[in-house]
Amino acid sequence: MKAGAARTITAVFTDFGAFLAALRSLKAEGVKHFRVYSPVELTEYEDLMPRRGSPIRVVSLLAGFTGCALGFWLCIGSAKLYNLIVGGKPVVAWVPYCVIGFELTILTAALCTVASVFVLSRLRPRALSPEYDGSFSADQFGICVPCNNEQAGGIAETFRSSGAVEIRES
């Protein structure tokens, strides 16, 4: 949620259409930070959610670069440490080291990607947010928008006009 927000406006909807209308209004107004609660997973509101790029891609990229460097470091270190017979070719040569570098790039990127999926999938139990209501897991939808005092009135009016059955401020 947005840091430094003075207030949180929570709207409760019993009608899915009203819920979608509120999301469309938020998107039209350019509100980018809000949290949505839904008793079921529905695809209709996915496009209305603020888009965030997954950090897993960055993890994969950095892990790939690291793996490549590790592969070359392993090969170059081994060649310099041990008196390998190279048959007149350079002691440190990039051509054969590309194979190890490539393999470790893929291996490291793959392993780190899988690990980051587990870490970032939020599997561990977490404390519920204070605005969460048990009815959001039963038969009601909720939208929580952190905002400052100037924005609170407008956002509350947006929810009211969309058909929210309850609007809470905290």
Binding site: G87, K89, A93, V95, P96, C98, V99
Partner: peptide, 12 residues
């Protein structure tokens, strides 16, 4: 490209 390069390089 690399599959051609590396055997030639290794065989020398």
């Amino acid at each position: 490209f690399f599959s051609q390069l590396i055997p030639i390089w290794y065989g020398n």
